[in-house]
Simulated assay, not measured.
Amino acid sequence: HIYVFKLSSVGGCSLALPPPNSSQFPPLSDWEAPSFTRAAQFRVGATALLFLFAATSNLALLVSVWCGRGRRLASHLRPLILSLAAADLIMTFVAMPLDAAWNVTVQWYAGDALCKLLCFLKLFAMHASAFILVVISLDRQHAILHPLDALNAHQRNRRMLLLAWSLSLLLASPQLFIFRAIRAETADFIQCATHGSFSRRWQETVYNMFHFITLYVVPLLVMSCCYSRILLHIHLQHRRNTGESYLRRSGTDIIPKARMKTLKMTLVIVLSFVVCWTPYYLLGVWYWFHPAVLHATPEYVHHFLFVFGNLNTCCDPVIYGFYTPSFRADLAACCHRGRGARRDVATPSTDRQGPHSRDHEAEHATNNQEGD
């Protein structure tokens, strides 16, 4: 048997076993185990930096919205931001360390159970992140098109979030059955792979395409539809109220300022998801139908596109902080307390009222209403 490595955007690296005398999988003269190349080293280093930033920023966002000044968010918006931060943290603490360690070790040393579990959690986090963005888009569409129906927004968003998390669990569950730890017969090499789960290559291609559609195509279509309807609604409102055929920059004469600010924030978050993940998914689709592209494109391109996709987990808290004064005030207060504590250690006689007075000023610097 001849084992061939291939790239999979759904589950990481997997081992494929070409059937004997198959024209689709021509036999190879020899097989060389993969190594920890220079491109892979770059990927590990970049992933480590992204991990540190994403973990710190998303944890800060979670704390701010859960128990800090972010509690001022409208009650139907808080669960959306908390869920988005939670999904990003799952990606951060599961997908990033898994990818980095897997590239360093090259083969799989964690056993069969962790092979199944970690591949499941990785796909679960990717689905959850995409579906929560869909929920946020649907919420913004309803808030703009039906502004008088705000009383039902909290319960509606809770139901949509429950559906998003449940669908993520359901769609990721096949990973528990198709991935397993496989030992190569011709070499002392073990890999977490899908070998043996698909009898034909087209079956695995269909499986990957299904997840490409649920992870990217469907969320992109829904989000595009939502924001297209929102922009069309604003445009028509302007024409109706002002008789002009163009959109003003702010739109605050049609939509309250806080709601417009939240709309802009969510739109930028969605755009960051599209920009970060589109190149990686397109490369995956290209590979599934033309496997030779894996050897035709430089190795560093594959690694760079995956790292660029993971950049999305860092973008969400940055975008939220840019549009939300309460988050910036929480970060400023935390930094002031840290500097005050260091000064207290260095000079115990320092006046301890300084940091607290600055926290009080930061408190008054935030807006009373963060969003609608």
Rank of each mutant, 00 (worst) to 15 (best):
S166P: 07
D330P: 02
I230Q: 00
R249Y: 11
S349F: 08
A100G: 12
G196T: 14
A100K: 09
A110P: 00
V63G: 00
G371N: 12
L80D: 03
S245E: 10
R183Y: 13
S357A: 03
Y109A: 09
S349Q: 10
A150K: 12
S83T: 09
G68F: 14
D88P: 00
F42R: 07
L236H: 12
T92R: 06
R248F: 11
L73F: 15
E361I: 12
V275I: 11
R358W: 08
L50H: 03
T366H: 07
E370H: 06
W277K: 12
C314M: 07
D99Q: 14
V4N: 09
R201D: 02
L305H: 06
H233W: 03
G340F: 13
E244R: 03
G70I: 13
C225F: 15
A332F: 14
A346C: 09
F5E: 13
C192R: 09
V274A: 12
L117P: 01
L305G: 03
V270R: 01
H364R: 12
F25I: 03
L283S: 04
L50T: 11
Y280A: 14
S166R: 03
M223N: 08
L271H: 02
A16E: 15
N367D: 10
A60I: 06
S64R: 08
L215I: 04
A48P: 00
Q203R: 05
R239I: 10
G284K: 02
P79E: 09
L7Q: 09
L161C: 00
L271C: 11
S35C: 02
L82I: 15
D351M: 01
I144Y: 04
G284W: 14
R140N: 06
E185W: 05
R159A: 10
H154C: 05
G354A: 09
L311A: 14
N152E: 15
R248L: 11
K264A: 01
H295G: 02
V94G: 03
Y320K: 05
Y207S: 10
C226D: 04
C225K: 07
P147K: 09
F289E: 07
T242R: 10
L62Y: 07
G340I: 14
R156S: 06
C67S: 14
S197L: 04
Y227M: 00
L7P: 08
L271V: 15
L267Q: 11
P79L: 01
L28G: 07
A292V: 11
C225A: 13
C119R: 15
I269P: 00
L117M: 04
Q203G: 14
P97T: 01
L49Q: 01
V65E: 00
A101M: 08
V275W: 01
L305C: 05
H360E: 06
A172Y: 01
E244H: 09
L59D: 04
D99K: 10
M265W: 05
F322C: 08
L121H: 00
W66M: 03
R259H: 15
R240D: 11
V222W: 06
V104W: 07
V206K: 04
V270D: 10
S245Q: 05
L50M: 05
G11F: 04
L52F: 08
A362V: 02
S29N: 15
D253M: 04
L305F: 13
R240M: 07
A113V: 10
Y323V: 13
L311S: 11
S197P: 04
H142R: 13
